[in-house]
Amino acid sequence: MTRALIYCRVSSAKQRIEGSGLESREQRCRAYADDKGYIVEGVFPDDVSGGGDFMRRPGMVALLSFLDAQKGKSYVVIFDDLKRFARDTEFHLKLRREFATRGASIECLNFRIEDTPEGKFIETVIAAQGELEREQNRRQVIQKMKARVENGFWVFRAPIGYRYVSAPSGGGKILEPDPVLAPLVTDALEGFASGHLGSQAEVQRFLERSPHFPKDKPDGTLRPMTVNRLLKKVVYAGYVEAPNWGVSTRKGQHEGLISFETFQKIQDALEGRKRHFPARKDKNEDFPLRGFVACDCCGNAMTAAWSKGKYRRYAYYRCETRGCEAKSKSVPKAKMEEGFGEILKGLQPAKELFQLAEVMLRDA
């Protein structure tokens, strides 16, 4: 009896659960084996899309490993379609050699493989045709995606803070702000633009403190590159672009989380250009430390205000940063400023500094 193995592959997880999926392909391969009188000893499925190195496909890796463990035994490996064998001509030929070195032959439902010069030539032509079709499909997909970007639609993975929904006018998906993550991203971007978050490291810590913001490291932290990319995405200003496809920056069809002016301030800061922050309009002699003291919880600048009580008014400093655990928790003005005074008292200039000042004043 001839021993057989079945390898079946689909291009996506969606195909796997539909009628043209793995089960239907396996069924056709089993019917072929029964007709030939083969005994099927194993089935190796894959749902990896496109071409590429077959050695990275889990199903193919498992199949080759199985053959390695069955030294001295001969197998026929059944494919339902020669194009499912390997979509790249280079890998097709390489995979043929891998099977040959393991003493395995291949058979396809839709192509009779012949070990003759003519048979090998036709097989190579069909493999090249599969590669051509894949490249043509890829080109067509890129052309369609490029056209959508040119019309103001974002076509890539939804950035953090957005999600895809069906466009109201039909014809595909469009970005809309995520109700949970969008406010957090807006606070981070505006905080960096305004200077309240003075560095990328501060933006990183701000985002890491949120339980909702997705982390990309096992320890619950973010990679610095993640923050840098977030600060550079023009999509957050309501614009789209695709430089690799020659599509310049243009107004998008989606709602921005920040203004383009804010986005430009962020780019100026990243490129080292000096940022000019407007004078605060809420300067008040009653609160000399407003904007200079930082929240112990989130690190952002605290604000201050008077609060009206039953009989009199009370002065407080407090944090108003969205998402901060200490948000709206007040610190009495007297307590805050007395503590600041104690810090000043502890600052004793060095004797050398007085001597230097004396020399400078004498020479002036």
Rank of each mutant, 00 (worst) to 15 (best):
M302R: 02
K345I: 15
R163C: 05
V76Y: 03
G19R: 10
E285M: 02
E208Y: 08
A188P: 00
G72H: 11
E338A: 09
V234Y: 15
E241W: 15
V149S: 05
Y239M: 06
P168L: 05
V227N: 00
K335G: 03
K36V: 02
N110D: 10
E325G: 14
D187G: 02
F354P: 00
K144Y: 12
V185W: 12
E208A: 12
F260L: 13
L231S: 00
F340L: 07
S20H: 14
G191D: 03
I266V: 11
L184E: 02
K36E: 14
K345E: 14
L22W: 10
K232E: 10
A127D: 09
D296F: 12
R250A: 12
Y316K: 05
R163Q: 08
L207Y: 04
Y7G: 00
V43M: 10
G309V: 08
V10C: 04
Y38K: 08
M55V: 11
P332L: 15
L95W: 05
A201Q: 14
V359Q: 14
R223N: 14
A269E: 12
I39A: 13
Q27N: 11
I39R: 15
F111R: 05
F153H: 11
E23G: 02
K83V: 09
E107I: 02
G339Q: 09
V40M: 06
V10D: 01
A334V: 13
R250N: 14
Q70P: 01
Y162I: 02
R57A: 04
E90K: 08
G246S: 05
L93W: 09
R28M: 12
S330G: 09
Y164K: 03
S65E: 11
A193L: 07
D46T: 00
D219N: 11
E107W: 07
A201K: 14
L95G: 01
A188N: 02
Y38G: 03
L22A: 04
A237D: 03
T303G: 12
L197G: 01
V234K: 05
R275S: 09
V359L: 13
Q355W: 15
I113L: 08
T101H: 08
A304P: 02
Q70I: 03
L22R: 04
K310W: 09
M336I: 07
G309K: 06
G19H: 08
I343A: 09
E255G: 01
M336D: 02
K215R: 14
K283I: 14
R362N: 13
L207H: 02
V48I: 11
Q143K: 13
P224S: 04
G272K: 11
G339E: 15
G152V: 07
G198M: 06
T226V: 05
A305P: 01
E98V: 10
V234E: 09
K120E: 15
L82Q: 11
R87Q: 05
F111G: 00
H212Q: 13
G220N: 10
K233A: 03
V141D: 10
Q136R: 15
L64K: 04
T186S: 07
I258P: 00
C108H: 07
S328P: 01
S105N: 06
R9W: 08
N284A: 03
I266C: 01
R209G: 06
L63G: 00
I343P: 01
G256L: 09
A167K: 06
L353M: 15
G130S: 04
R84M: 06
G171D: 14
P159C: 05
D216C: 07
V43R: 04
S199Q: 11
F263S: 01
R56Q: 13
E352A: 05
A301T: 03
